[in-house]
Amino acid sequence: MEPGNYIPTKYLPVIIALAFSTIFGVGGLLINKILAPKKFNPVKLMSYESGNLPSGDTRSRFFIGFFLLAILFVVFDVEVIFLYPWALAFDLISLEGFWAMLIFISLILLGYIYEIFIGALQWHKK
């Protein structure tokens, strides 16, 4: 096999499944559009606020806790992704590799304990 000649043929069912689910979703939506009644009523088209008229700008406030959670998620996701090659190549790594990953996990754990201590994930004010 020359580089530049490799076709990943095992992924063909994935593309077929993608196509099928899309056709199923879009087809169902089309049938729904044909069969459903279309009665225009301005109340139906307004956004729902439990009986009140929709008021105010929809995105005036955004809790910063969500953004902090996203950053934490990136860091932990990268760490977990590094665990997978280490777990697979476990028998072929020398002892240093094993301890290196344990040091890595303990570094992340240090940061994690600091987070909990500082209370970065508190969602209500005490």
């Binding site: 939506l29 049938i31 729904n32 069969l35 459903a36 009644p37 139906k44 088209l45 307004m46 956004s47």
Partner: peptide, 9 residues
């Protein structure tokens, strides 16, 4: 399939 598909304005 027979329900109306409402898209808010």
């Amino acid at each position: 399939f027979f329900k109306e598909d409402i898209i808010p304005v």
